[in-house]
């Protein structure tokens, strides 16, 4: 690991001497990492190697068992985790309207976001009547809302974004990610499948600790 050099100029996330310990296992030790704009980072590794824990630490959700420091300098943070983060008793539109209020996105873009995840017909159905896959896509619609908001220094942290999405959904998502990176955003994701993306990528392979 390179020694702790100062934060790169346009770094969205600066990680210094990061150590992660969960459930008595040392997942990471002394990791230095700078994630700047225009970057795509893929976190790989066997199950239980700490991919999700690292992602949640980057998001600031997980501080337990963390040594070293993680500092974020991004205007917007989007985290799509395993759980859909939507209310069953609200419709996709109501869920996304609240997300827009929370992040300051334009609520007018909800319909186009839902359309891009293939849920335009189900905008006003209670989420409890949607399938698990559809609920994940409501969560994914947040990504398109963030994309439409088009903020600079946006940091996307995506946990297995491609699971339970059909083929052209994957293609659309990959294209959006590529464009977001091209525009100056940073995208960090974990994935088991290989990525249908042909842009430079930094691969973070988590080994031991299994």
């Amino acid at each position: 690991m390179s020694s702790a050099q100062p934060a790169a100029a346009s770094a969205l996330v600066t990680v210094r001497e990061l150590g992660l310990e969960r459930g008595g296992r040392l997942l990471l030790d002394n990791l230095d990492l700078d994630i700047a704009g225009h970057e795509l980072v893929l976190i790989e590794g066997p199950n239980g190697s700490g991919k999700t824990t690292l992602l949640r630490s980057l998001a600031g959700l997980s501080r337990l068992g963390l040594t070293g420091s993680i500092t974020r300098h991004c205007d917007e943070l989007l985290y799509l985790g395993h759980r859909a983060g939507i209310k069953q008793l609200l419709t996709p539109r109501e869920n996304l309207a609240w997300a827009c209020r929370s992040q300051g996105w334009d609520a007018g873009a909800i319909d186009s976001a839902l359309e891009r995840v293939g849920l335009s017909g189900r905008a006003d159905v209670f989420c409890q009547h949607l399938s698990a896959g559809q609920q994940r896509r409501v969560n994914l619609a947040r990504l398109y809302l963030s994309f439409d908001a088009g903020r600079e220094n946006a940091l996307w942290l995506l946990d297995e974004p491609f699971t339970a999405i059909d083929r052209d959904g994957v293609a659309a998502l990959a294209a959006t990610m590529a464009e977001q990176v091209a525009r100056g955003g940073a995208v960090v994701l974990t994935s088991h499948q290989d990525l249908p993306l042909d842009i430079p990528l930094r691969r973070l392979v988590l080994g031991g600790g299994a």
């Binding site: 998001a59 959700l61 943070l77 985290y79 859909a84 983060g85 939507i86 069953q88 929370s102 300051g104």
Partner: peptide, 11 residues
Amino acid sequence: DGSLEQLLLSP
């Protein structure tokens, strides 16, 4: 359902 997580991440 994970919406508490989203609240914590909100600015």
